[in-house]
């Protein structure tokens, strides 16, 4: 085959692969939205479920989702940002940091069902937390830790060295420099990581179902069991409780993920714009 011709052919394949990816995403989102949105109304969003979710709304699942996401972030954000600050500002590359990075990378690759098994045997059973927001939050916190560490590290590394030198030059201690110069400037990147981690908590099922449980009540304390939207969607769809309600829950779930991604992207572009202005 002529090499110009083979280039045309190959580029055609590349273009179709890229278009296929966009079309697949569009199909997934449109399908759930078209089927689900007609059933979404105020009563659905603010009402409690009736008969295991066959009727009524999903308020407890919405609240459970946000409570679980918030709790896991409260636990994970200080640890993740702390780890990132330590790795970037407080140490040089050494065997110890290699081990720390290896831990983070490996943790990122651990599948959610393993987190589910671990959370179940450790937080739920051994620490006797039962199926609860706290057990679920701790489990999800470990799951999102690698994302938080990586995004925070990247954001911190992007802060110009000159800023640090000026701060030291004015007589700041290391922590004063980190607190007043590095962290404020890295904030957009760190917040992006936090938002993406929240998305992970919203979408997670396998780890949540065995640690936070499936109870359809509005959680009243960190020790109450809960059911997130993803878990509710799974149960409605797999146990065949109600297909319309499953679609509706799926639509709310996708809408939440869409909002999270749009906000994260806005922050990323803002951060880039700021970096360019410098």
């Amino acid at each position: 085959m002529n090499r110009q011709l083979s280039q045309r052919f190959a580029f055609g394949l590349l273009w179709s692969a890229a278009s296929a990816t966009i079309i697949i995403l569009a199909i997934i989102v449109m399908f759930i939205m078209v089927q689900g949105l007609p059933y979404v109304n105020l009563a659905f969003l603010t009402g409690g479920p009736i008969a295991q979710g066959r009727e009524g709304g999903i308020l407890p699942a919405i609240l459970g989702t946000f409570a679980l996401g918030a709790l896991s972030l409260i636990i994970a954000v200080p640890l993740g940002v702390g780890a990132a600050v330590f790795l970037t500002e407080y140490t040089r590359p050494s065997p110890l940091t290699t081990i720390m990075r290896f831990g983070t990378d490996s943790l990122a690759g651990v599948p959610s069902i393993i987190f589910g098994l671990f959370g179940f045997i450790f937080f739920v059973t051994r620490l006797n937390l039962g199926w609860s927001l706290l057990a679920g939050g701790l489990t999800i916190a470990l799951m999102v830790l690698p994302t938080l560490i990586r995004t925070a590290e990247e954001a911190i590394r992007a802060v110009p060295v000159a800023y640090r030198e000026v701060s030291y030059g004015l007589g700041a201690s290391r922590w004063q420099m980190v607190r007043t110069v590095v962290l404020p400037n890295a904030l957009p990147g760190i917040v992006t990581g936090i938002i993406l981690s929240f998305g992970r908590a919203v979408g997670e099922t396998a780890a949540v179902i065995f640690t936070a449980g499936t109870a359809l009540n509005i959680p009243t304390s960190v020790l109450s069991p809960t059911r997130t939207m993803a878990v509710h969607f799974y149960i409605l769809a797999v146990e065949g409780i109600s297909l319309p309600k499953a679609y509706a829950t799926g639509a709310v779930l996708i809408a939440t993920i869409l909002v999270i991604n749009v906000v994260a992207n806005l922050l990323i572009t803002r951060g880039v714009a700021r970096a360019v202005r410098r």
Partner: peptide, 20 residues
Amino acid sequence: VIRPVLQLLAGIPSVIYGFI
């Protein structure tokens, strides 16, 4: 366009994929 598309594909919950 492709970057956020992939980001969104990564963000869609696995239960939604399973359901599709």
